[in-house]
Every structure is written in C-alpha cells, then in structure tokens.
C-alpha cells in the first residue's frame, strides 16, 4: 500500500512541468524516505533527479519499497484535472497496474478521482558520485532563466566561465555573439536576490542551450538556483523545493576534441 497526500497540490503540477520536456517515461521510486525519480533524456545527455522527502507530505505511507513506471506526458495530462489550490492524494496498491490521483478542492466541495495506467519501464539507476565542485554559483532563478532564454535566441551553446570577476554566460551564432556577466552581489537585503560565487578554481565549460533552457522550467519551484561546475564534468543545476527536497539536473559538457 502506497499513499501520499500533498496539501500544496500545485507543487506536484510544477514538478511535472519541470520534467516533462526532458523525460518521456520514468520510474518513480517510493520508499519510506520519500518519492523520488532519476531519469535521463532520450539521448542520454542530461539526467534529472527529483527528491520529495516523506516529511514534506501531510500524509505518507509506503509499506514497501517499489517503483511506479509512469509516462510523464500522461501524468501531466492527468494533473491538468487538478486546480492549483487542490489537495492531491496519490494511491497505489501492491500488484496493481494503475495509480489513482485524487484531487480535493480546499473547501471539500469537489473531489476528482483519476486513474492512470502504469507502465513497465526498463531503466538503469546511475550512481552519481559525491563531488567537490571547483565553482558554485547561487543566483536568482528568474535571472538565470532570462539569461538562458536571451542567449538561446543568438546561439545553440552557452559557455559558462567562473572567475574572480564573476560568472559570464556567453554564446555565438550566425547573427553574432553575446555575453552576460553577473557579479557577486551578497549585500542585497533580500537573500533570494543575491548572487554568490564560491570559487576554488576558475572554470570554463560549454553546454547545449536547448537542455539548459529546459532545466529553467523549474524556475517556479525555487527563488534561487545553484549551478555547480568542475572542469570536464557534468554541470549540476539545482532548484531546492522548500521543506521537501530538490530537483537536480545534470548535463554532460561539450568538450573540444
């Protein structure tokens, strides 16, 4: 028996919106720790890892560890039946091939029961090593989103360079080139507006913008984004989900050969 109840149902809608352009199908792993997912895009260039801890739910019951294979696109369709202020309950029984979503309006005057078919998904879990990163940039998530959107109108790749001067995002395309530099700014009164750069070594890495732009679909989940970089390693773009966990995107770099 698996049952979880999330009063802030819109959060699940936003989480699925943040994944659906990257991943087609995924196994959701259910355990006493929480509700989690690890999945790659179809070309195996990017990986998303989601964690929603059990303590973050109003009710969380998971009698045994298991995985539920779901089509993310179908899940997004089902969640369209929920209003933003609805309470969402997800239920599944042992051995069944369906999952039930229940959406309750806050005043309890409307209840929707939606049943979705589960799928068998053959996917491998990748071991993500704990790494010390050479540079970590924390910045407003909306700022990062708008930088990626702006640069993707000019070019296909973004080069992220972290130095003592700040973090520079640059691109080049047929019509020209552009770069945007953000300097450390920790003096702001609002912590969500701060840009903080922790640098052990200067780093320069290049990534495909189409993936990074997809990651910024998670912007509404967190006011800040953390970008962790090391030479010749995948970047980690992390959005914390308050009181619950995180969504982390990993993207393999483009390396000169």
């Amino acid at each position: 028996m698996f049952e979880l109840r999330l009063v802030q149902g819109s959060l699940l809608k936003r989480v699925i919106d943040a994944i659906k352009d990257l991943v087609n199908d995924a196994n959701f792993d259910c355990s006493s720790t929480g509700f989690s997912l690890q999945a790659m895009d179809s070309s195996h260039v990017a990986l998303v890892a989601l964690l929603l801890r059990s303590e973050g739910f109003e009710h969380f019951r998971c009698d045994r560890t298991f995985s539920m294979g779901m089509s993310i696109a179908n899940m997004a369709k089902m969640l369209k039946c929920a209003s933003n202020d609805d309470i969402i309950t997800i239920k599944a029984d042992d051995g069944t091939d369906t999952v039930t979503f229940m959406f309750e309006s806050p005043s309890q005057d409307k209840i929707s029961d939606i049943e979705m078919k589960l799928m068998d998904i053959d996917s491998d879990h990748l071991g993500i090593p704990d790494a010390e990163y050479e540079a970590i940039v924390r910045m407003p998530s909306t700022e990062f989103g708008s930088i990626c959107t702006s640069l993707s109108t000019i070019g296909d790749t973004v080069t992220i360079a972290v130095s003592k001067q700040g973090v520079t995002f640059s691109t080049k395309g047929d019509i020209g080139s552009g770069n945007i530099t953000c300097r450390q700014n920790s003096s702001t009164e609002k912590p969500e507006e701060a840009t903080i750069i922790e640098m052990k070594e200067p780093v320069v890495l290049t990534f495909a913008l189409k993936y990074i732009t997809t990651f910024t679909k998670a912007t509404s989940l967190s006011s800040q984004v953390t970008i962790s970089l090391s030479s010749d390693m995948p970047v980690v773009v992390e959005y914390k989900i308050a009181e619950m966990g995180h969504i982390r995107y990993y993207l393999a770099p483009k390396i000169e050969e």
């Binding site: 790659m40 070309s43 195996h44 260039v45 990017a46 990986l47 491998d124 879990h125 990748l126 071991g127 993500i128 090593p129 790749t157 290049t206 495909a208 390693m233 995948p234 990993y250 993207l251 393999a252 770099p253 483009k254 390396i255 000169e256 050969e257």
Partner: peptide
C-alpha cells in the same frame, strides 16, 4: 570541434 558527451560517460550504473 566541440563534442557533446553523454551523461553515461561520467556516471556509471549503480
């Protein structure tokens, strides 16, 4: 030439 690597080149099966 910049070559796009796969994530599986960096992280292996758990």
């Amino acid at each position: 030439v910049n070559k796009q690597h796969q994530i599986t080149a960096f992280f292996t099966k758990a």
